Amino acid sequence: MRINETFNQNLTTDYIPGSLNDDQGRDIGPTGNFVALVPRDFKYSIISPLRGSAGVTYFFTDKGFITGSLEYVGYSGMRARTKYSTVANENKDFNESSKIEIKDTYKSGINARVGGEYRAGLFRGRLGLAYLSDPYKDLNDGINRSKLLFSAGAGVRNDRFFADVSGTVSTFKSAYTPYVLNNAQDYSSVDISNRTFNVMLTVGTFF
């Protein structure tokens, strides 16, 4: 995808009166505290990770089905490129540095999903489980950022009407680092265990 980006920067200062005086003792400090800079434009393109998946589904006649899939995601193959600068070397430096940073940060991963649905007359029931691998190459803070997602749902369906309620629980770990120093032994990160729960209700009719 191609992105056209415009960004603005502003500088605000707090001047203490009397900090700058001339030889007569008169304050010659700045009279304004806001400096607006000219907006900057930047155009670049992003190549998303290569994905490949394979799956299998088994149907129990009209009683439901079980399905599973494996997905390969080449995070390290992402790219950010630009031709916006009129200086060829600046474009080349951006492209090369982004490539190196992506390769040093990300790795390829495998995601797995399995689920099933049971049908009994108008009733429908579903269960699912998904594992999303950690895309980061180095565990500098010792945290594995892979995710587990559990889902369950139930509903009714006939030829004219359907209603369904489903819930998803997502669990993963993250870290918060307020600052970073050259020596990792001189600072710490807060380990965070995240659990999110989403519920969705869907009601519809067929025409």
Results as ranks from 00 to 15, higher is better:
M200N: 11
G68S: 03
D27Q: 09
A184D: 12
R119D: 08
Q9N: 04
D138L: 09
E71V: 00
L139V: 06
M200L: 05
R2S: 03
N21T: 09
S19M: 01
F206Q: 01
A130R: 08
T202Q: 15
G121D: 12
L70M: 09
S146H: 14
V165Q: 07
Y15R: 07
L139M: 13
T13C: 01
L132V: 10
S170A: 13
Y118R: 10
T6E: 04
D141E: 13
S53A: 15
I192P: 11
E117W: 01
T177A: 03
D164P: 01
D27E: 06
S170V: 10
N144D: 15
T82H: 04
K43C: 07
D164A: 00
S53H: 11
S133L: 10
F59K: 14
G77H: 01
T61F: 09
F7K: 06
T57I: 10
R81I: 01
L70S: 05
Q185T: 13
V156N: 13
A175R: 05
Y58C: 06
G55E: 06
V73R: 04
T86H: 14
A36E: 15
Q9A: 08
G32V: 08
N95V: 01
R126G: 03
N111V: 02
V35T: 14
D27C: 10
V156H: 13
S45Q: 13
R2P: 01
R81W: 00
N95K: 00
F161C: 03
G116M: 00
Q24K: 11
G115D: 06
A36F: 08
I143T: 15
N140W: 07
N183R: 13
G109S: 15
L181F: 05
G125Y: 02
L50T: 11
A175G: 05
V180H: 14
D41L: 05
S133W: 12
S174L: 03
T61E: 15
L132Q: 14
G109W: 04
S133D: 15
I100F: 08
L70R: 10
N89F: 10
V169G: 06
L132K: 14
D104H: 06
S133T: 09
T86Q: 13
P49K: 02
T6S: 04
N182T: 12
D159P: 07
N183M: 12
T12M: 07
L139G: 06
M200A: 09
S85A: 02
F42M: 04
F65C: 01
P178R: 03
T82A: 02
Y72G: 00
D134A: 11
F42G: 05
F42D: 03
L149D: 02
N10P: 00
R160T: 10
N33I: 05
T67I: 00
Y75L: 00
L50A: 12
K83L: 08
R113W: 03
